[in-house]
Design a protein around this nucleic acid. Structure first.
Length: 954
RNA sequence: GCGCUCGUGCCGCAACUGGAAGACGGACCGGCUUGAGGAGCCGGGGGUUGAGGGUUCGAAUCCCUCCGAGCGCACCA
C-alpha cells in the first residue's frame, strides 16, 4: 500500500484528498480544537464552571483502557470512535456533552514488567500512557483533556481511599435496606438498643472484641477466610478472577484454597438490589442475564436438623421434598463436624462408609486432608464420582422423625448456603449419585410423571421435575400429599416456621468480594493497626496514603503448583513505611502504628471513575453534588440516573460492572450521589478480529507479508495456513493506527471502522476493504473541491427536486441510525447521497453543506476543512445537525407491487397518497394479476397502500 | 449438561413492526480515461436467506425439530 501511494504521488492532482493532504488537515484541526478548548465540557459549578444547557446534556463514556506497553492496534479504538461519533452528533443537536478518556493504570502487567526489567512500574506506566495519548490523539477524538484522570495519580487515588473509608465506616441495615454510618450502629450498641452477641455491655468489651464485633457488620472488613491463593502470581484472587477450571484469569496459573486473613467487601448485602435495579437499565439482555446468574438469587428455606444436642442448619430450594431427606451432608470444613463426631463407629456402620479408618475422627481427618489437597481442577475432574465419609453421627429428620446418617463430602461447598444439605437422593441428581455409591436409602416423595413408578430401586437417575405432585409426605401434623411443588413448599415452610425449626429464606450464589492483593502496584489501604492489633481508619486529613518508593517492588511468587506457600506483601518489606508514629486525632495522641501492607485490587480505581470525570480536580469532595446531579441525576429517561451511554467490551459483564454498581449504591445510600446506578445505557462493541497465518510448525508468521495464490497462502516461499483469531502482537497480525494514519489518514480509519458492520458484532479486519472508505472520502472531497486548484467547485444554484430528495432522505436516515448506534447503515446512506452528487455537473452549495455537516461526526477533520472551504469560519462542532424536511421525503410516484397469493405478478406506478380503494382497483386490472387469476374469483384483497396489494383467489 | 446469541451472493454485511431479498463496501467481469498501472469514471453478473416442518393472503423475520458457530455458567443444594 505504501508503494502505490508513493508511485501515484508524482502525477496526482495537487489537491487530491490523499494521505499527505489528510495528514496536514488532521494535524491542523487537532491543533485548532486543542487551542480553542473546543471539547472542554462546562460544569454547572466548581472549577470547570461554564455555560451549560439545563435540558440537554449527555455524559458519554468508554471503558477506559489499561495502557499496555505495546501500544494500541486498530481494534482498540473501535468503541472510542463510536462514542466520539455519537458525542459529536449530540453536540450538533445542542447537547452539552461530557466525553473524555482516562487510564486504568494500576495492575499486574506493569509489575511483571518491573520484575523483568527493573524499571519502576510508575515509569513504565506513565510512558505507556503518554504513548496511548499520542496514538489515540491522532484519531481526533473530541475528549475533554482536563478530565482525563489516571488511577495512579495520588490526587485520584486519594479519593479511591476516601471511598474505601466510607465503605469501611458503614454497615448494612437490612430493615432499611440501606447502608448507614457505623457510628449509628455503635450508638445502638452503646445505648443497649442493640444487644451484643453475649449480652455484655459495649463498655465491657475490649478494643479487639469491639473490633471483631463491628467487623461482622462493616461493608469492608478484614477476616480469616478461605481464599483463592495463586502461588504463581504470588497473590490471592477474587472469585471473579478465577476461571471455571480453577486457574487464574491472568497468567493461567493453578489456584488453591487457602485460609488467610484478607480484606473483604460485603457486596452480598446488595444482592437483592443489584438484581432488582437491573430492570430499568438500558443494557443488553445478555449482560443483565449474566449478572443475574452470577448473583444467583434463589428462594428456599432454612431447616434445622437436630444432632446430638446441636442443630445443623441446611439451606434447600426444595423444602417440599423434606420427607425424602434420607441423609445429610456437610462440607468437609463445616464448623460442627468436630462437635458431632463420636469416638467410635456406631454398631453396624457399613465398611464403605468408614473410608478405611478405625474411628470416625480418623476418617474425617483423612478425608479433610484429601479434600484440601485437591485443587479446583481436580475437584472439577472428579465431579462425576462422589466421594465422602460418614461422620458417625445421626441427625433427626424434623418432619419424619427418622434418624439419618450425617456425611462429609466435597460435593457440598462451604461457601454456598449454610455449607450443609439435606440429601434427597430420589429427587436430586447429585444426591442420587452419592446415595448409589454409598448404598444409602432413598424415598420417592414426588410422583414421577414419566411412568417409571415409585420403586426407587428400579430408577436409573433422580426424578427432579418441578411439575409433579407430592406423595408419601405426611406426619401427624402436616400433609403435603397431593399438592403441587409450589403449594407444598408454601405449606411446609409455614409449618416449619410455626414450629420454630425453619423459615423461608433467600440465598445468593454471590460471595463477598475479596478486596486485598499482595502486590506493590495498587492503592494502599488507608488503615493502620495499633500495638494491640486494633484496626484504625486514618482520618481524611491523612489521605492520600502514598505508595512508598521501594527498592524491591516485585511480588514474591512461588512454584505455581506449591499450594503450601503463603503470600508475602511487597510493602511489608519496608519497615520505615510500615511502622509509623501518628496522631489520629482520636484523643489518644501520637501512638505507634503498623500500616496495612496489602494493596487494593486493580478494580478499585475503575469502580468510580465516572464520578471523577465529572469533577476531576475537586479538592473538597469526591464529586460536587450539583455537578453529579447535573450529569448523572435521575430523570424521566433514566429513572435510576447514571451515565447516558457507556460503551465497552462484554468481558466486563460481571467484574467491573458489578463492582462499580456496588460502590455506587453505597455512595448513594450515604448521600454522596443522587443516582442509584452508575451506567444507564450500556452497549457492548464487538471485537475486531484478524486472520492469523501459521507455518507448518504452527508458529504465526507476519500476516502483512503473506501472499495468496490460488486459494492457498504463502510466506517466504512456504505454504502457511490461515485461521481466524484476535489481533495482537504475538500473533503477528497487529495493524497499528500510526501506520494506518500515515497511509490513509485518521478520517479514513474512523469511516472504515464504523462501516465494517454493526458495532456489537465481531468482524474481521480486512486491509484490502479499506479502499471503499478511501474512495468515499475522496469523492466527497472532489464533489466540493476542485482537485487542480483546491478551490470550492460548488454552484450557487438551487438543487433540483431529485437532489433535494436524496439529501433529505439521507439526512433523515443518518440521524436515526446514529441515534440508534447503527453507524454502518448511516455511512451507507451518506455514500448513497454522495454517489448521487457525483453524477451532477456541479454540486449545489446548499447540498454540499448538508453533506459536510451530516458527515462531520464520522470524518470530523475532513468536514471541518470542507466547511472552511465553503466559506465558514471557526469550527462546525456546534453547527446544528441537518434536519430532514418531510416535504422533500415524499416521492412523486412510488412502485406498488401487485401480488397474487403472495407472489409478485405485476408492478404499477402510483401516487404516494393513493387511496386504498383506488389502488385495489388498479391492481385488479393489471395484466399480471389477471393472468395469474386466470378467471378465478377473488376471495380477499389485502391492500397496504401505497406499496403493496395482495390478491387472494377463491 | 444448562442458559443466551447468531447462520442472507465469493467476503464484510442491509432489509422498518411479517409486505418486491440485497442497501452500502470489498472482490470479480466489461467498457471509458491513461504511455502504462492504479484506489479515476461508467456499467454488469451472482442467492432455494444453514436444513426440514408449521402459522399466515404473505416468512430472512414468528413457532417447533435438527445441523453448525460463538459466548456465559457449571457439584450453587
Amino acid at each position: 500500500m505504501e508503494q502505490s501511494t508513493a508511485a501515484a504521488a508524482g502525477d496526482e492532482p495537487a489537491h487530491r484528498y490523499g494521505a499527505a493532504l489528510a495528514r496536514g488537515i488532521e494535524a491542523r484541526w487537532q491543533a485548532y480544537w486543542a487551542e480553542n478548548g473546543t471539547f472542554e465540557a462546562p460544569n454547572p459549578t466548581g472549577t470547570l464552571k461554564g455555560h451549560v444547557s439545563e435540558a440537554k446534556h449527555s455524559f458519554i463514556m468508554d471503558m477506559f483502557p489499561y495502557p499496555s506497553g505495546s501500544g494500541v492496534h486498530v481494534g482498540h479504538p473501535l468503541g472510542y470512535i463510536a462514542t466520539d461519533v455519537f458525542a459529536r452528533y449530540q453536540r450538533m443537536n445542542g447537547f452539552t456533552v461530557l466525553h473524555t478518556l482516562g487510564f486504568d493504570a494500576f495492575g499486574l502487567p506493569a509489575e511483571q514488567h518491573a520484575v523483568a526489567t527493573g524499571e519502576h512500574p510508575r515509569t513504565s506506566t506513565e510512558a505507556a500512557i503518554a504513548n496511548y495519548r499520542r496514538q489515540l490523539g491522532r484519531i481526533g477524538f473530541g475528549h475533554d483533556p482536563r478530565r482525563s484522570i489516571t488511577t495512579i495519580d495520588p490526587a485520584y487515588y486519594r479519593w479511591t481511599q476516601w471511598i474505601f473509608l466510607q465503605i469501611f465506616n458503614s454497615w448494612y441495615d437490612t430493615r432499611r435496606e440501606s447502608a448507614r454510618p457505623i457510628s449509628e450502629l455503635i450508638a445502638e450498641f452503646e445505648s443497649g438498643a442493640r444487644p451484643t452477641p453475649d449480652g455484655r455491655g459495649w463498655a465491657e468489651l475490649s478494643g479487639i472484641e469491639r473490633d471483631e464485633l463491628l467487623g461482622e457488620y462493616r461493608l469492608a472488613y478484614a477476616k480469616e477466610v478461605s481464599v483463592n491463593w495463586c502461588p504463581g502470581l504470588g497473590t490471592v484472587l477474587a472469585n471473579e478472577e478465577v476461571t471455571a477450571d480453577g486457574r487464574s484469569e491472568r497468567g493461567n496459573f493453578p489456584v488453591f484454597k487457602s485460609k488467610l486473613k484478607q480484606w473483604m467487601m460485603r457486596i452480598t448485602a446488595y444482592g437483592d438490589r443489584l438484581i432488582s435495579d437491573l430492570e430499568p437499565l438500558d443494557w443488553p439482555e445478555a449482560i443483565k442475564l449474566q449478572q443475574r446468574n452470577w448473583i444467583g438469587r434463589s428462594e428456599g428455606a432454612r431447616v434445622d436438623f437436630p444432632v446430638d444436642g446441636h442443630a445443623i442448619t441446611v439451606f434447600t430450594t426444595r423444602p417440599d421434598t423434606l420427607f425424602g431427606a434420607t441423609y445429610m451432608v456437610l462440607a468437609p470444613e463445616h464448623d460442627l463436624v468436630d462437635a458431632v463426631v463420636p469416638a467410635a463407629w456406631p454398631e453396624g456402620t457399613p465398611e464403605a462408609w468408614r473410608g478405611g479408618a478405625a474411628t470416625p475422627g480418623e476418617a474425617v481427618t483423612a478425608y479433610r486432608a484429601m479434600a484440601a489437597a485437591k485443587s479446583d481442577v481436580d475437584r472439577q475432574a472428579d465431579a462425576k464420582t462422589k466421594t465422602g465419609v460418614f461422620t458417625g453421627a445421626y441427625a433427626t429428620n424434623p418432619v419424619s422423625g427418622e434418624q439419618v446418617p450425617v456425611f462429609i463430602a466435597d460435593y457440598v461447598l462451604m461457601g454456598y448456603g449454610t455449607g450443609a444439605i439435606m440429601a434427597v437422593p430420589a429427587h436430586d441428581t447429585r444426591d442420587f449419585a452419592f446415595a448409589r455409591a454409598f448404598g444409602l436409602p432413598m424415598r420417592c416423595v414426588v410422583e414421577p410423571t414419566d411412568g417409571r413408578g415409585e420403586d426407587v430401586a428400579t430408577w436409573d437417575d433422580a426424578f427432579a421435575s418441578y411439575d409433579a405432585l407430592i406423595v408419601n409426605s405426611a406426619n401427624a401434623e402436616v400433609s403435603l400429599n397431593g399438592l403441587g411443588v409450589v403449594e407444598a413448599k408454601a405449606r411446609i415452610t409455614q409449618w416449619l416456621t410455626e414450629k420454630g425449626i425453619g423459615e423461608g429464606t433467600v440465598n445468593f450464589r454471590l460471595r463477598d468480594w475479596l478486596f486485598s492483593r499482595q502486590r506493590y502496584w495498587g492503592e494502599p489501604f488507608p488503615v493502620v493497626y495499633d500495638e494491640e492489633g486494633v484496626l484504625h481508619a486514618l482520618p481524611e486529613s491523612m489521605l492520600p496514603v502514598e505508595l512508598p518508593e521501594v527498592e524491591d517492588f516485585s511480588p514474591r511468587t512461588f512454584d505455581p503448583d506449591d499450594a503450601k506457600t503463603e503470600p508475602e506483601t511487597p510493602l511489608s518489606r519496608n519497615a520505615d513505611w510500615v511502622n509509623v508514629t501518628l496522631d489520629l486525632g482520636d484523643g489518644r495522641g501520637p501512638q505507634r502504628y503498623r500500616r496495612e501492607t496489602n494493596t487494593m485490587p486493580n478494580w478499585a480505581g475503575s469502580c468510580w471513575y465516572e464520578l471523577r470525570y465529572i469533577d476531576p480536580d475537586d479538592e473538597n469532595a469526591v464529586v460536587d453534588p450539583v455537578n453529579e446531579r447535573y450529569w448523572m441525576g435521575p430523570d424521566s429517561g433514566k429513572p435510576n440516573g447514571g451515565v447516558d451511554l457507556y460503551i465497552g467490551g462484554a468481558e466486563h459483564a460481571v467484574l467491573h460492572l458489578l463492582y462499580s454498581r456496588f460502590w455506587h449504591k453505597v455512595l448513594f445510600d450515604l448521600g454522596y450521589v443522587s443516582s442509584k446506578e452508575p451506567f444507564h445505557k450500556l452497549f457492548n462493541q464487538g471485537m475486531i478480529t484478524a486472520d492469523v497465518y501459521r507455518d507448518a510448525r504452527g508458529f504465526p508468521v507476519p500476516a502483512a507479508e503473506v501472499e495468496e495464490r490460488g486459494g492457498k497462502y504463502y510466506w517466504d516461499g512456504a505454504e502457511v495456513f490461515r485461521e481466524a483469531g484476535k489481533m495482537g502482537k504475538s500473533l503477528k497480525n497487529s495493524v497499528s493506527p500510526d501506520d494506518f494514519c500515515d497511509t490513509y489518514g485518521a478520517d479514513t480509519l474512523r469511516v472504515y471502522e464504523m462501516s465494517m458492520g454493526p458495532l456489537e458484532v465481531s468482524k474481521p479486519w480486512d486491509t484490502k476493504a479499506v479502499s471503499g472508505a478511501v474512495r468515499f472520502l475522496q469523492r466527497v472531497w472532489r464533489n466540493v473541491v476542485d482537485e487542480e486548484t483546491g478551490l470550492p467547485r460548488v454552484t450557487e444554484s438551487e438543487p433540483d427536486a431529485e437532489t433535494l430528495r436524496a439529501a433529505h432522505q439521507a439526512v433523515a436516515g443518518v440521524a436515526e441510525d446514529i441515534a440508534g448506534l447503527r453507524f454502518n447503515t448511516a455511512i451507507a446512506k451518506l455514500i448513497v447521497l454522495n454517489n448521487h452528487l457525483t453524477k451532477l455537473d456541479a454540486v449545489p452549495r446548499q447540498t454540499a453543506e448538508t453533506l459536510v455537516l451530516a458527515l462531520a461526526p464520522f470524518a470530523p477533520h475532513l468536514a471541518e476543512e470542507l466547511w472552511a472551504k465553503l466559506g465558514h469560519s471557526g469550527t462546525l462542532t456546534f453547527e446544528p445537525y441537518p434536519v430532514a424536511d418531510p416535504r422533500y421525503l415524499v416521492a412523486d410516484e412510488v412502485t406498488c407491487v401487485v401480488q397474487v397469493q403472495g407472489k409478485v405478478r405485476d408492478k404499477i406506478q402510483v401516487a404516494p397518497d393513493i387511496s386504498e380503494d383506488a389502488l385495489k382497483e388498479l391492481a385488479l386490472a393489471t395484466d399480471g394479476a389477471q393472468r395469474a387469476l386466470d378467471g378465478r374469483a377473488v376471495r380477499t384483497v389485502i391492500v397496504r397502500a401505497p406499496k403493496l396489494v395482495n390478491i387472494v383467489p377463491a
